[in-house]
């Protein structure tokens, strides 16, 4: 190739190509893991979607069948974590951000249904898993600031909270269909509390903002369910709803 005294030292572009090719290799490695994660996420939500047609008394069964796919998700996340920690986090994080959100969404719903730290066959709905608890579950750091490693980001957590609200809105109606008039009240409370949380945030004009703008409609949807129940005197006596 031309000597250095030419216009372009060919070494420049050879080096650039090598660097870019390295990134491509990393992408290829990550892509397989991310696809696996996507598949396992689907399996979990497949099982958990039964919650919409399962009375609370039978929920332990559903949670039990979710355990294995959940474990697969957790394993895949830790594989991803290992592979991705070799590289600057934000260089590639848009590759897996959606799937990590998916994993969180499943885990949050599972946790809300009572899957987290379940001791006996009695399930207790209404628990919000914190970002730290999710990190513990997936065995990954969360919301990192001081070092550049794979982690669960705050944005991913917040995005999955919004999905959780959407899922619970659906559950409120379906619970009524199942003759369960208690959970809509619980959901009403929970969804309002989360909505109040989101209102504290100063969101800029990004996807989080757009999605969180939709929360108020979900809150209203659930309120409508509660309204329908109270209109017909179907609301259980106060004190029965659990926090």
């Amino acid at each position: 190739m031309a000597a250095q005294s030419g216009m372009v030292n060919p070494a420049i572009f050879q080096d650039l190509q090598a660097r870019v090719d390295e990134d491509t290799a990393v992408r290829d490695e990550l892509r397989d893991i991310i696809q696996a994660l996507e598949k396992h996420n689907r399996n979990v939500s497949f099982v958990l979607s039964r919650a919409h047609s399962t009375p609370v008394s039978d929920l332990p069964e559903t949670l039990k069948s979710a355990q294995e796919p959940m474990n697969n998700v957790i394993d895949t996340v830790s594989r991803l974590s290992q592979a991705a920690s070799k590289m600057p986090y934000y260089k590639f994080n848009n590759m897996w951000s959606r799937q990590m959100q998916g994993a969180c969404e499943s885990a949050l719903f599972w946790g809300w249904l009572g899957g987290y730290n379940k001791v006996d066959d009695e399930v207790q709905c209404g628990r919000l898993l914190t970002i730290e608890e999710l990190g513990e579950m997936f065995k990954i750091p969360v919301n990192l600031k001081d070092r550049d490693e794979f982690h669960l980001s705050l944005e991913e957590y917040l995005q999955s909270l919004i999905t959780l609200v959407e899922e619970l809105t659906r559950l409120a109606r379906n619970a009524v269909t199942l003759g369960d008039f208690e959970r809509p009240l619980l959901i009403n409370r929970f969804v309002k509390d989360l909505h109040a949380g989101f209102q504290i945030l100063n969101l800029k004009n990004d996807s989080l903002r757009r999605r969180s703008d939709g929360l108020k409609y979900r809150v209203k949807d659930v309120e409508d369910v509660v309204y329908d129940l109270s209109l017909r005197n179907l609301v259980p006596k106060q004190g029965e709803q659990k926090e």
């Binding site: 919000l128 309002k192 509390d193 109040a196 949380g197 504290i200 926090e243």
Partner: peptide
């Protein structure tokens, strides 16, 4: 809301 502290 019990989540206020967290959201703050």
């Amino acid at each position: 809301s019990p989540f206020v502290a967290m959201f703050e």
